[in-house]
């Protein structure tokens, strides 16, 4: 698998994603600057990383969706190739309409930086073999509350596109860290579930030295799909 991480001005988890993919998982990983208009030949996975692209001007992800590189990312997704949006990357995907709904201010107005439990609720390339499993992953965001109209929510559940849902965990803190509708933490989209957006940070929980390896499961899963199916 060949991965690229898009770097926007204000991205701050781009190096985390490169480190998890490149050093920990041994995936060939490169950084692509937001001003580029094409992706490197042979790119299998595009990661839109966490951070505060363009200082969250207007809304998180709103300016990033106008970046030159995003036309290439959209083409990549539309032909069924893999796109992973983490945190700000998820916000960029909803602002780009590559995923439905929107992510807005946490219901309690606080920045949440802690571990949460999320249950894998859908099959797909990033969660192959993981359905039903609960993962412990860190979140770090102020605007992660997923909002969509009732018709969209019904469709997402009806089509089984809710990839990850916040679920109850030990401890005094609310299990849903932001008030997301239907406890939605991650969503599949794209023509063959090749697009995944999620608020938690799998790249920050990809090796035991950082507290666990649950995050690596998502990268391993998509890597296996690429290895078995070949390039799209």
């Amino acid at each position: 698998m060949r991965a690229v991480v898009i770097q926007f001005p204000g991205s701050n988890a781009d190096f985390d994603a490169r480190d998890a993919l490149g050093r920990v998982l041994g995936v060939h990983t490169a950084t692509v600057f937001h001003r580029e208009t094409t992706l490197p030949a042979g790119t299998d996975l595009v990661v839109l990383p966490g951070g505060f692209s363009y200082g969250d001007a207007l809304r998180p992800g709103a300016i990033a969706r106008t970046a030159p590189v995003m036309a290439a990312v959209r083409r990549h997704a539309e032909r069924g190739a893999f796109v992973l949006g983490i945190c700000n990357g998820f916000q960029i995907l909803t602002e780009s309409k590559m995923l439905p709904g929107a992510l807005t201010r946490n219901a309690h107005q606080r920045f949440e930086s802690r571990d949460v439990s999320v249950r894998v609720d859908a099959d797909g390339p990033f969660t192959a073999g993981l359905r039903g499993r609960t993962l412990r992953l860190p979140v770090a965001h102020a605007e992660g509350r997923f909002v969509a109209d009732p018709e969209t929510l019904a469709r997402l559940d009806g089509e089984g596109l809710v990839a990850l849902r916040y679920v109850a965990a030990e401890g005094p803190l609310a299990y849903n860290p932001n008030g997301a509708m239907r406890d939605i933490a991650g969503l599949y989209g794209g023509p063959r579930r090749n697009v995944l957006g999620l608020m938690p940070h799998p790249e920050r929980r990809a090796e035991a030295a950082l507290g666990g390896t649950d995050g690596a499961l998502l990268f391993h899963a998509v890597s296996r799909v690429v290895a078995s199916a070949g390039r799209v």
């Binding site: 809304r59 929107a102 807005t104 909002v147």
Partner: peptide, 9 residues
């Protein structure tokens, strides 16, 4: 429409 305002919100 879709940029200065997000019609979802």
């Amino acid at each position: 429409d879709g940029f200065l305002a997000n019609p979802v919100l």
